[in-house]
Simulated scan of single mutants.
Amino acid sequence: MEDQRKPITNNMQLAKKLPMWKVDPQIQTLVEATCFKHFLRFHEGNSVNQNLSLLTALAYFYDRDESVFSFGDKKSFFVDFSLEDVLYITGLSIDGDPVTGVENVSAHAIAHELNIHETEVDELYFKRKKAKTNVRLDLNKLRTRFEKVPEECLDCDAYLKAYLLYLLGTVIMPNNTEGVSPIYLPLLGRNTVNKYAWGAAMVGFLKNSLKDTKALLDEGKTGSISGFVYAIMVFALERFACVREELSLRSVSDNISHKELEPKSEHQGVKELRSKDKEQRSDQEEPLLISNGLMTRAKSNKLKEAVRDILKQGMLSDQEGKELVTTTLVVIQVQEG
């Protein structure tokens, strides 16, 4: 029987605009001091492409009620695209003040944030034919106005805000237009931007988009996921080995050599001690094996004993002022019925 599922459509047009902004070295230095620093890599010729087949499959498995990916005939297995995933993939903060923005940003407020005259604001608005009022700034006009930074700029905060707002509008929280809301401008200053949980905002935006997309797919319509879908693709490749095998890829973490993870300035003697300590911990820690099947009292006691030992190690390490390092992994499989 032919697969009747509707594929999702490409929604990367706005993301392709990001590399168009030629980041001035002065602004690059400021961006590198923020949680958005890793997005500068997309200006180095690294393209952002979608695997529509992968994203379509993921969208069909999305549970709108639980906001997770669910698998199995009875939805007995759940995988969450979580805050930790976004932190790991993007480096964006997941702990901080909520990204709520400022309501009803006036032309005067925009002019103040971007350090321009109020008459210039009208030229930056994204003009919609049937709209009574302008509520978004045009991405193209924003880039044209703020891409070039004066030499020896004494106060580049406005140019930093403009670039980060452009980043939000093209990659982090895009909409179906080429406009971006100015409500985030007060949050994007060099002294304030790192105080906010941008990673949490990204998760919320992507999950809302997944929910809307799945609603369309359930109705037999075509949808598209808005937001930084690259994060969802990396999430799938990291979480599901079968996807990597299908695409003949390896885990991102597998592609990083141990030498790349070692501090370059670390003394050779410290490296030897670290290696010796790792071998000792590897010898001491044995895997906890609990057979499949029903969770019997004996299995429960075995699990409780393992967890109790971990907590005990933590208390002793805390008293001695040491950091607890454990490789214990506990996997619990729940079967209905």
Rank of each mutant, 00 (worst) to 15 (best):
Y62L: 01
Y62D: 00
L83Y: 00
E285Q: 11
Y88N: 09
E32V: 09
N46H: 10
A162F: 09
L83M: 10
C153T: 12
L185K: 04
P174E: 00
E147N: 13
K6I: 15
N191H: 10
L294W: 06
K214T: 12
F39P: 04
K322N: 15
R64Q: 11
F81T: 02
P98R: 08
D73A: 13
G72Y: 01
V99H: 03
L55E: 01
K6D: 04
I225S: 00
V252L: 09
W21R: 03
N176G: 14
E272I: 15
E238G: 08
E151A: 14
S248L: 14
L18I: 11
I94N: 01
A131M: 11
S106T: 15
S300E: 13
S106I: 06
C242M: 13
G72S: 01
P25N: 03
L58K: 01
Y125N: 07
T177A: 05
A241K: 07
P19N: 06
D80C: 03
S224E: 07
T222A: 12
L273E: 04
L18S: 02
L18N: 02
G91W: 08
D277N: 12
L142W: 13
N292L: 12
F78D: 00
F81P: 00
M173G: 09
N175E: 15
L217D: 08
C153W: 05
L187Y: 05
A15W: 07
H267K: 15
L168N: 08
L154C: 09
N208A: 12
A15K: 08
I110K: 01
I183K: 00
H43W: 04
A57G: 11
I116F: 02
S106Y: 00
Y88K: 11
L237I: 04
Q26C: 06
I290V: 10
A57E: 11
S181V: 13
Q333E: 01
E66P: 03
I27F: 04
E32N: 13
F240V: 03
L114P: 01
L316S: 07
V180K: 05
A109K: 02
A200P: 02
E118K: 14
F71I: 07
F36P: 00
I94L: 01
H43K: 05
H267A: 15
V307Q: 03
A231M: 06
K221V: 12
Q335R: 13
Q280Y: 15
L30Q: 13
A306G: 04
D218H: 12
P7N: 03
F42T: 11
G321M: 10
T133W: 04
E151S: 11
F39C: 03
Y163L: 14
L92Q: 04
V325K: 07
N301Q: 10
S67Y: 05
G204V: 01
E66C: 04
F61L: 14
G293N: 14
D85K: 06
R297M: 04
K214Q: 12
L188S: 07
L18H: 02
T56W: 08
L311M: 05
Q333H: 01
K271A: 09
D283P: 03
V252Q: 10
S291V: 11
P150E: 12
P19T: 05
T213F: 02
L217V: 10
M202L: 15
L206F: 05
E84G: 00
G199H: 04
H43S: 07
D73I: 15
S275I: 12
L206S: 05
